[in-house]
Design a protein around this nucleic acid. Sequence first.
DNA 1: CGGTGTCATGACATCGGTGTCATAGACGGG
DNA 2: CCCGTCTATGACACCGATGTCATGACACCG
Lengths: 365, 365
Amino acid sequence: MLVATIYDVAKAAGVSPKTVSRVLNGDAPVSQKTREAVQTAIAELGFVPSHAARSMKSNRSGLVGLITGAISNADEVASHAGLPELQIVQGAQSIISASGKTLLISDTGGRLDRVPDLVRTFQEHRVEGILYVADFHKPLEVTLPGKGIRKVLVNCFDDAGTPAVVPDDEAGQYALTKSVLAAGHRRIAYLTLAEGQEATRLRRFGFRRALEEAGIAYDPTLVRATDLFGRPGEHQLIWDALDQFFDRADPPTVLLCGNDRLAMAVYGILRKRGISVPEQVSVVGYDDHRLIAETLYPSLTTAELPYRAMGARAAQWLLDLIADPAAPDASEPARVSGQVHLRDSLVAPSAQHDNIINLKGRTET
Amino acid sequence: MLVATIYDVAKAAGVSPKTVSRVLNGDAPVSQKTREAVQTAIAELGFVPSHAARSMKSNRSGLVGLITGAISNADEVASHAGLPELQIVQGAQSIISASGKTLLISDTGGRLDRVPDLVRTFQEHRVEGILYVADFHKPLEVTLPGKGIRKVLVNCFDDAGTPAVVPDDEAGQYALTKSVLAAGHRRIAYLTLAEGQEATRLRRFGFRRALEEAGIAYDPTLVRATDLFGRPGEHQLIWDALDQFFDRADPPTVLLCGNDRLAMAVYGILRKRGISVPEQVSVVGYDDHRLIAETLYPSLTTAELPYRAMGARAAQWLLDLIADPAAPDASEPARVSGQVHLRDSLVAPSAQHDNIINLKGRTET
DNA sequence: CGGTGTCATGACATCGGTGTCATAGACGGG
DNA sequence: CCCGTCTATGACACCGATGTCATGACACCG
């Protein structure tokens, strides 16, 4: 006898299995004496009810599936993905487990073609819903199998009206740019993420909107895409962009970076060029990747990518859909916005005592 | 009818449920014609067998539980924990899923008192084994419940002979120090992790062993613990340590850091002091946290904390224990060693053209 | 042509719980 | 004292698979 069953408990307590069940679930009156006898037997045998048997009868698995590439991506590419994506899992986990359900986490290992397998495994476990988490804000790349299963997309979206939760990149960059403007900056350079990404497109809108409101013309020559996801050549790209910016007669007083990792690289390259942060130029990131933002010296001003909140929001949405099967799909993704975190890397241009103009070549090695 | 059952398939194909089962499992001959009829019915109904029913009959859940604080820690503390710990999960995931089993991942949310609950949930699911993952190398902090369930500890150990997989910190620091010595350094400063940690203790052994072999005396004044897990005050601690090192008549030519995050902070503080890496001093980390090591500029020489391999090793061990219930416990934890990754932050002292001596105060702000 | 073995298939019990229904006492009112 | 009601409990079927055993249809052999 590997594990005790309800029958073992019943025999030990001298009652019927059904009575044990009643003690377990408290769904019918049981006399004090019987209850105690049963509880003693349960404790002695170390009995734990079988989830399989229970869910078979009730036809409710109490399971929610989550598909992510986070766990594998974390190592594969030292990119903006990885750890932050994990916060989505974390946010979902907290909501799901608070609801008494269990989260089944599966990992694509970076291979989209494994998704059908993962969904099938979920179906075998009769999950009540599925969360699909993308590694960054993008259109859904696969057709999710699993007809009839409730799903919520996180960090991605489709055009079929599947419920989706995405970051409000436009509002995030808008708020961040407003903070930069509020500090007094007027010449703002922007090292964006790769072209073609949702985040790049949406954040540029937010950036421009903030500039317009401040009456500053958008200058495309102050904007360069430099994110190569940490692949070789990225440092060179950043270096070239900084060259271009600082060669100008009116060099920028602040550098916005598409993510905190880029900002970290920028710190290093600025150091090599002999330019101090923030004494000579302010630097701003994006993501609020705290490992970076708080450890960098000086600490980094950045906009939060509200991954944790997105995970929680998506999980709650999914639970609602499960509870009310008649609930309608959404026509629009839910957009979650995050806060701006002001830290030491952003100061007023007036506090930048050392002027950057014509620093070019000063300490190139 | 929410989901199709084997009975629905049987009816649609005009055969008995048992025959459908035979088609599914291929454990008995079925005629070609019958097989096709059944497969057609399965496809039409979108039938997926119920894991619950299956495991109830077979008494084998095919599940393995994993308990970690990684998912929550990732955000809580921007420390050496978080992402790297996740690689343990990743390594385990790959082995477990390759074995056809499913990994059930649970998260303590940083609260050890939740462990019994998590174990209980695992027991309800009748997991065949449990992996317990600590956030850094330490003695086991809790008594794991779940009598009779096979367990393997990862990144922690107890004195009861529970199978455990830990990093070989001594060998790692030894190899890393050997690399530093091989580059020609003789005056080596060491910013260690917090006192009292296993890693701190073991790595110091490795450090000293390498020094001894090179005939260099261990100088305690060149060793300072500066890791505050990213909490405020850490920068100050590092700053003070660097002051002390560089005030010497014979300042060190290289700084070993207890982890890559510390190295990142060191980069920033050195920049503020006007000291260039590696032109004036070499810097070395620990962990091979690639997000940091490859993005920092210059890229960081560091020793790999072989988390992924540890996860895989532990998972394989657990699978072996499950397959052979008679297998004995181990008296010693398995120690997994990682490689040294040489990158740009470490150069020969002869290549450090600018002497550090008496730089003190040069650019303090 | 009967006996025997193989192949293909089905009936039935079973895994561990829970829903349904029945029933034995206790208790109270008329 | 009888009957209705309520409380506490048990018998039994069932959820969806699969293991065991039985059986019908052939084919092959002597």
